[in-house]
């Protein structure tokens, strides 16, 4: 497979933005592409919820332990520091990091050795961070760090959606809507996991495949599944 280039990813994301796109799906694809592009093991995107807490909105994998690790950073971790300072944070070797004991221990338990975070900025405001994990220790080289920052900037643009952000208030409105969309996805995962006796990761896969094949917006489909107005996609039907 040809090496994935930043330009290819940016073109793909820009194409998505033209359509009537779903912000959660968009951010999910973005985390997947950043894993491929940067050669890291996992990526997650956290946004401020306006209540001093960072919330995970999208991740390259929905593995429960991974999601918990991302979310653990609502209290402490590189993502929180990155969000607070508005600057990238890079830990090349978690084994020697002492700043975030709870986070470091949890990251090690999942098998990660290095972690990096780049801020999502809109002018002077920091709205979240894009977070990368790697199983091998090592720092991100400057090119990759720049690519990571470019992807974080694209994510910010995606969140702002169709409306020109003249006011901070509009940004707040969009952020809150995106965070609630993520909750709808979690509720739908629960419905599918129970209905088809699958785990949460597989439930998300079902939801996403059904959204793709039916050309439905991920959040709309999730909402319909929770409301019971949509026939739930079966794992038996590809």
């Amino acid at each position: 497979m040809a090496e994935l280039q930043l330009a290819d990813v940016l073109v793909e994301m820009a194409d998505t933005l033209v359509d009537d796109f779903d912000v959660i799906d968009f951010l999910h694809v973005l985390t997947e592409r950043s894993v491929q592009l940067l050669g890291v093991s996992a990526a997650g995107l956290l946004l401020t919820d306006g209540r001093d807490t960072l919330q995970l909105v999208a991740a390259s994998s929905e593995r429960t332990r991974l999601l918990e690790l991302f979310q653990l950073q609502s209290d402490e971790g590189p993502c929180v520091d990155c969000f607070r300072t508005g600057r990238p944070v890079s830990v090349a070797n978690l084994a020697t990091a002492t700043r975030w004991p709870r986070f470091t221990e949890a990251a090690a338990a999942v098998g990660f050795a290095a972690v990096h975070a780049v801020p999502m900025r809109l002018r002077t405001q920091v709205i979240g961070a894009l977070n990368f994990f790697d199983t091998a220790p090592g720092s991100l080289d400057p090119d990759k760090l720049r690519s990571g920052q470019a992807l974080a900037d694209v994510a910010t643009i995606g969140l702002l959606q169709e409306r020109a952000i003249r006011r901070r208030d509009v940004l707040t409105e969009q952020l809150q809507a995106a965070l609630n969309s993520r909750i709808v996805i979690e509720q739908a995962k629960g419905v599918l996991a129970e209905r088809w006796h699958v785990d949460m990761d597989e439930a998300f896969g079902l939801l996403r495949r059904h959204s793709r094949s039916g050309n439905r917006r991920l959040s709309e489909l999730a909402r319909a599944i929770v409301d019971g107005t949509e026939q739930m996609p079966s794992p038996a039907v590809p």
């Binding site: 909750i183 509720q187 995962k189 629960g190 419905v191 996991a193 129970e194 209905r195 929770v226 019971g228």
Partner: peptide, 20 residues
């Protein structure tokens, strides 16, 4: 802010046949 709460809500919709 705990995803498990929402996942569990979804599971209960099916277990109890009720609204979210």
């Amino acid at each position: 802010h705990h995803p498990e709460v929402h996942q569990a809500t979804g599971m209960l919709i099916v277990q109890l046949r009720v609204t979210a």
